[in-house]
Amino acid sequence: MGDLNAKVGREYDGFQGTIGKFGIGVRNDNRRRLLELCGASGLSITNTYFNHKLEHKTTWVSPNGLVQNLIDYVIVNQKWKKSILDTRTFRGCRRVPSDHKLVISKIRIKIQANQEKRRTIKFDVDNLRNERVKQQYEVKVGGKFAALIGMENMDMDSEESWAILSSDTKDVATEVLGYKRINSKPWFSDEAKVLSEEQQRLRVQVDDKQDLEKKQQLKRRRNRKLRELSDRMKHDQNMFWKERATKVAVAMEIGESRAMFAAVRFLRNASQEKVWRGVHGMLDEDGNLVTDEMEKRNLFARYFERLLNVDTTRYWDKKKKKSIADLNEALEVQEEDISAKR
């Protein structure tokens, strides 16, 4: 809000979103500077968006009362433009001697509480497949149950007993099983991790070197590592998705519905993970899954070769014969008409 001595005028073409269609007066030189500033900063001049009487739009009156202008503006960010309900001036609020009118805006803002999303922590129950971990977990949980059974003579209700049982079980699971780690790139192998660390180390050396020749040598070494890392990541992705597809097929054959649906859910939700766009497979002519890049390119080449290389000689020969037959028929009809007229 402020006295900017800029007359935006009535024309708003080319500045939609910055000014409305209810401006007044003739524009001056400061108009261009103000509109460029608002357009570059994503601001809106709210005085020009509401249709009021002229006396409720003008913000400045000359000492003789003959000249009125709109030069005081309430400017807001465009994302808050819908929160401005009205902007207008009031003539009667002149307790302070001034040639400017009071400008008031009505604002409606919906304030929402910042609700923190609580992250659900899951225990890594897959570790129970390891017999050693499973026995360790059973021994420690059994010890906690024995201690709880020994407390039966104490005066405790069911809620207190459940709280102790739940807390002890969680403590044992945290100690023995641990938490399930969320890996956004499950296909990232140890070899790729080593290559990534090496190229990071080379990048630091490139930044620290002052000798241009040595810096160029380090850059070439780092570029080679980056190419190796890219190839390794592509290979790891292809192998990862092949393994997932194989798990689904094997689970279907042996009748393990739980493992099958778990693998299918993972594949269905794969788009929500941070995976590359080129990892999804294709089916070839025999219905087999193809994930290798070169095989997919060859598959596309064969498809378009069949699509575009069609033998069209029969079609054009047939069309040509039909055109000649139509022409002969038309000539015969024309000769019959001529003979009839004679």
Rank of each mutant, 00 (worst) to 15 (best):
M260P: 02
Y303E: 10
K318Q: 14
L54M: 03
F188E: 03
K21M: 10
D211A: 07
S83Y: 07
K234I: 07
D231M: 14
R342G: 04
L35C: 02
R108V: 04
K140Q: 11
L226N: 05
T87Q: 00
K79W: 11
D337W: 14
G42R: 12
I254S: 07
I84L: 12
T18D: 03
K101T: 05
K81A: 12
T246E: 15
Q136N: 02
V248H: 01
I45H: 00
T174E: 08
D155Q: 14
L229M: 05
F15V: 10
N328P: 00
I75L: 06
N223D: 14
L202K: 13
N328C: 12
A251R: 00
R27T: 02
Q136I: 06
L195V: 10
N114I: 10
Q200H: 11
K321P: 04
A263E: 05
D317K: 15
M154L: 07
N328F: 05
D155G: 01
G281P: 09
G25L: 09
P186F: 08
T48M: 10
D284I: 03
G14H: 09
S323G: 12
N238L: 08
E159V: 11
T18E: 01
N114H: 11
E191S: 05
M294H: 10
L34S: 02
K247I: 03
I111A: 15
I104D: 00
V275G: 08
K144E: 10
E175F: 12
R277C: 03
Q200M: 13
E332M: 06
A262W: 09
K322S: 12
C93V: 15
R220W: 11
T48A: 00
Y303K: 14
S257N: 05
G65M: 01
V103H: 02
Q216S: 07
V206H: 00
D13T: 12
V264T: 03
